[in-house]
Computed example of a mutant assay.
Amino acid sequence: MSVPIVDRQPGDPFLVGRGLVKNYGSHRALAGVDLAVRAGEVLAIVGPSGSGKTTLLHVLAGIVRPDGGEVLLDGHRIDQLGEARRSALRRQEFGFVFQQGLLIGELTAAENTALPLLLAGADRARAMAGAREWLAKLGLNGLEERLPGELSGGQAQRVAIARALAHQPKVIFADEPTGALDTRTSAETTDALFAAAAQTGAAVVIVTHDRELAAKAGRVVEIRDGHIAGGVLVG
């Protein structure tokens, strides 16, 4: 699925969740959440374990459907789409960075980075050239042919960031992207993520327990027991 191009200005809301409800059995993970993501912003979602923050990210990203409410991208509902169309939407419009990176072990750093471009139909030469360009931007020159098992944790996460940005998505969803990294590597990795996203104009929605990481965001939203508990502007 391709969402029509909108003349979007920095600060305009373009990904909107309204009245989001999600239940897992008797547990209500989201209890009527309203949240708008603005073009080009870095939004951190914080809260204790089990608060609903990862569920909120998954619903906004079209990974799971809400049981109530709606999700709109550029004014078009995406929560009602079938799985195949939501999967295509995620490949085309969104990028993802997870705690463990989820790189494919048999592929090199360049090949992992090129995957979104190949899935979008780019020929291999163009996809690999684009992948190498993003790896260079993230300080990984000379590591393009290494397998994930030959990279440090921080290097692997930078490859995951390059992969997430290679097709220039509208928004990057990052779920605890530094949870497995030490403090110094965590700071370097998130700084690289935010800087690289800013080059493309992509928004970043990051779920984290790390308050120092969250403090680098332009906006912080706290979720507790499936409700938005509060939001503050940082900076």
Rank of each mutant, 00 (worst) to 15 (best):
G179D: 12
G149T: 02
A166E: 00
D191P: 01
A131Y: 01
L147V: 04
R163Y: 01
L119E: 06
L135N: 05
D182R: 07
L118P: 08
D191H: 14
K137Q: 15
N112E: 01
T185C: 08
L165D: 04
N112S: 07
E176P: 07
T183G: 00
G153L: 07
G130K: 07
L151T: 02
S152F: 01
V171E: 06
Q168N: 13
A195F: 05
M128W: 08
A109W: 00
L193Q: 12
A180Y: 05
T185R: 05
A174E: 09
E133V: 12
L140D: 02
T183F: 08
E144C: 08
E133M: 13
E144Q: 11
A174H: 09
D175S: 12
R124L: 11
I161V: 14
E145D: 14
E144F: 03
A195G: 12
D123K: 00
A166C: 08
N112G: 06
P116L: 05
A166Y: 00
G154C: 03
N112C: 03
Q157Y: 03
L165C: 09
I161Y: 02
P169A: 09
E145P: 00
R184C: 06
A196N: 08
V159C: 05
T185K: 05
A162L: 05
A127W: 00
A187S: 13
A180H: 12
W134P: 02
F173Q: 08
F173R: 12
Q157F: 06
R184G: 04
G139V: 04
I172H: 07
P169V: 12
L165E: 05
L138H: 10
L143Q: 12
A195K: 14
A127K: 10
G149V: 08
P116R: 03
A166L: 01
K170A: 15
T183Q: 15
A110G: 03
G121E: 04
S186A: 15
P177I: 13
L140Q: 03
H167F: 00
R163F: 01
P169L: 12
K170H: 14
P148C: 01
L140Y: 01
A110T: 07
L140C: 09
L117S: 09
D123L: 03
L117E: 01
P148F: 00
G121Y: 03
G130D: 02
R184Y: 00
L181M: 11
D182L: 09
A162E: 02
T178R: 13
A136N: 12
G153V: 03
E111Y: 03
G179H: 05
A109C: 05
A166S: 14
R163K: 06
D175M: 13
T189G: 11
A166M: 06
R132P: 04
L151N: 02
R158L: 06
A136P: 10
P177S: 12
R132T: 07
K137E: 14
G139D: 02
N141T: 14
H167Q: 09
E133Y: 13
G179V: 12
K170F: 05
P116W: 00
E145A: 14
R126S: 15
A110F: 03
L165K: 07
T190D: 11
A136D: 15
L147K: 10
W134Y: 04
T190H: 11
S186N: 11
T189V: 15
A129M: 11
L117Y: 01
E111Q: 13
A164W: 00
L119V: 13
D182N: 07
V171S: 06
S152V: 02
A180V: 12
R126F: 01
W134N: 03
A122R: 14
P116N: 07
G149C: 08
D182P: 07
R126P: 02
A162R: 04
A174S: 11
